[in-house]
């Protein structure tokens, strides 16, 4: 898939030769793991936007998924590699803050993307509001249920910014709908098998579950399998992300709706801003991309594989 992307990107480059290109524009791009398709979409977005402007990208991903110590070492190693600019997200915001502060202090401009990495002089932040995503998708489910019923929450990793913000969003939505009761809220670590098994166990305790909120697609898909195997495929499940596999489940009616957390677009915008910053443009300090609610009515746009998507038009300079 990556090779296909490279070919596409090469074609784009030949068609539109970049202007005002600096000498060595190598961008270091951090992401959290090689497992979740969300980050693969993000890396493809970064590659595409960078290639469109004629810059080179090097990706840094911990070999053990979401491993804090390894991600911290990589940050230190990138100080030595001294790229022209960096796109950074933290596996753990607090733990990696000193590292990214040192990267910035060494003279590398850093764009923070995907989720907030704390208080450091970043060129800009590109991401989405996880709390708002969580609240919006939970309200979508609650309104679908007519404001009444018992729901189960499958959380991400406790202590991760993304997971905690989304959980707070779910809980805030529940407070606004007094007829909704949260039956159980269990972390399933953003993973499929733990979500499937947690759902199987929770179903044993609650003969009636009116809805399920998962903090990410992989967990929602695990829950869908568990519900289907128990003959409860009619229980509506909602999720956050919108990777193609989950959007197919929306198309087929297995997932009710997904709050879009679009890694591809975040990657596009962040890489574009970083390179334009290098070329002396004033870029916005903060770009919060909107997230649509993906339902059966509008899902076609998100069925397109990442490699065939096109970056959105660049955000204007400030």
């Amino acid at each position: 898939m990556r090779r296909v992307t490279a070919a596409l990107v090469l074609a784009t480059m030949l068609a539109a030769p970049p202007t005002a290109r600096a000498a060595d524009e190598t961008i270091a791009a951090f992401s959290k793991n090689q497992v979740d398709p969300h980050f693969e979409g993000l890396r493809i977005g970064v590659d595409q936007a960078a290639a469109a402007l004629g810059a080179t990208v090097r990706h840094y991903v911990p070999t053990r998924p979401n491993n804090i110590a390894e991600a911290t070492s990589q940050l230190e190693d990138v100080v030595a590699a001294h790229p022209a600019a960096a796109l950074f997200m933290a596996v753990d915001a607090r733990a990696q803050l000193p590292g990214v502060q040192r990267l910035i202090a060494s003279g590398v401009p850093v764009v923070n993307y995907n989720d907030r990495a704390g208080d450091a002089p970043f060129v800009s932040y590109v991401g989405q509001d996880d709390f708002a995503l969580g609240k919006a998708i939970a309200l979508h489910l609650f309104d679908h249920l007519g404001g009444r019923g018992g729901v189960v929450i499958l959380e991400g990793v406790r202590g991760s910014t993304t997971g905690d913000d989304r959980r707070r969003g779910f809980e805030a939505a529940a407070r606004e709908r007094p007829g909704i009761r949260i039956l159980a809220s269990q972390p399933a670590n953003f993973q499929r098998l733990p979500a499937l098994q947690a759902m199987e166990n929770i179903m044993q305790r609650y003969p009636r579950i009116d809805g399920v909120i998962a903090a990410a697609d992989a967990m929602a898909l695990g829950a869908v399998e568990a519900l289907a195997a128990a003959g409860r495929a009619n229980v509506p499940v909602v999720s956050i992300n919108g990777v193609p596999e989950a959007v197919e489940a929306v198309r087929d009616g297995r997932i009710l709706a997904i709050a879009e957390f679009n890694g591809f677009r975040i990657g596009c915008v962040a890489a574009n801003l970083a390179i334009r910053h290098l070329r002396g443009e004033n870029v916005p300090r903060e770009v919060l991309l909107p997230g649509a609610i993906i339902t059966r009515a509008n899902m076609a746009e998100w069925l397109v594989p990442f490699a065939q998507r096109r970056c959105p038009p660049p955000i204007p300079a400030t």
């Binding site: 090689q34 998924p65 098998l193 733990p194 898909l221 596999e245």
Partner: peptide
């Protein structure tokens, strides 16, 4: 058995 149960394969699936 995993493929049958989970209906999907991705890297890192066995780690836990």
């Amino acid at each position: 058995v995993y493929l049958g149960r989970v209906n999907a394969a991705e890297a890192g699936l066995g780690d836990p």
